[in-house]
Design a protein around this nucleic acid. Structure first.
Lengths: 186, 186
DNA sequence: AAAAATACTTACTAATAAGTAAGTATCCAA
DNA sequence: TTGGATACTTACTTATTAGTAAGTATTTTT
């Protein structure tokens, strides 16, 4: 596949994660890549097209990560830890996550992009629910809440705390993530 | 103060909570109010001006709520419950909260708006930290985490789950909030 | 009654946005 | 070697945006 195409997706994603979907333009991408605005339209006729592709890329990336973890025989703790590490990395790079960034713009998104975002979100929350459930059964995790609610809690915490971290000074994201994990022990 | 001015703030806030800051325009407001675009500029010369006023209004509203709860002698449970009820109401109205909506757009906001948003966020998180601390001291709340992390967790959960609720079908927001509160008992 | 403040409208400007049609250069395959 | 696919550029259009300058009607103050 085309290198330019991939760089557009990468740059578009970064712009969404820093400025938000409705604040970035094709010009932002084209000037950064040293090409013309129309060249971006060559690969992605509409912004909705690009948005959808970016979410689809995120879905693929997540599915690959899960497959990879399964093939490596990761237990529930390791899987959760790997997931949390993605957020720690995002925080280090001063970025949000795709859900936290596109979520508030949901109503302004194209139907296809909305559908992919729904797909991605359900994929993540359902996966989290499952590892919490099986981890609890195995005695790894201790919590009283319903697994789905607990999954939503952990996911929501990670998502919105990326925003908190950018806004509240001296917010210790790593310590926050540790607290989430510690909370699953007792 | 002017009725029109207040309706602009109210409408602007609603637009931020549904479409996001960068997706709404003065035209959205003026057509809804049956006035001209320039009339909105009469009250708020720039969009940054309006944004800042909206956040300031939210700060005032929050401070009034706290004062009100203090004068009514609300204990920590009742205070937390009142806070959570705001989110339940937002969810019922299919809205996000101002932090969850402006957070992702932070870098695109005017400096004054950013400062107010920081102020509001710290106000909320510090207040939550305080009631968690004193509630724990009194034996009302039971949790092992550091109060500040726990406050960030609860706040983040409430914020991002408003987004989750719009995106994931069959998400039971009330049950989710109950789970948060139950989690403070054992 | 005159002056001034209030609450707008009219009629714009300048910038930026997404998007497109038509053209060009390069490379690869038949 | 020629035709077509690929990867763009040039040069636009149309729409929308924030923002403004100048004018008008109404109310309030002096």
């Amino acid at each position: 596949m085309s290198v330019t195409r991939e760089r557009i997706i990468e740059l578009g994603e970064n712009l969404i994660l820093t400025k938000g979907y409705n604040a970035f333009s094709y010009q932002d991408i084209s000037t950064e890549l040293g090409i013309k605005n129309a060249a971006v339209h060559y690969y992605f006729p509409t912004k909705a097209n690009l948005g959808t592709s970016i979410v689809k890329t995120n879905i693929l990336r997540f599915e690959e990560m899960i497959d990879n973890m399964h093939s490596r025989g990761f237990d529930e703790w390791k899987q959760l830890d790997a997931f949390i590490k993605i957020y720690i990395k995002s925080n280090r790079e001063q970025k949000l996550c795709i859900f936290g960034s596109l979520g508030p713009d949901f109503d302004t998104l194209n139907e296809n992009t909305q559908n992919e975002l729904v797909k991605m979100t359900e994929l993540i929350v359902n996966w989290l629910t499952e590892i919490l459930t099986s981890g609890k059964e195995k005695g790894f995790f201790v919590f009283n809440e319903d697994s789905h609610n607990k999954a939503a809690m952990i996911f929501s915490s990670l998502v919105a705390s990326l925003q908190l971290s950018r806004i509240v000074k001296n917010f210790d994201y790593k310590s926050f993530c540790q607290a989430i994990q510690e909370g699953l022990k007792s």
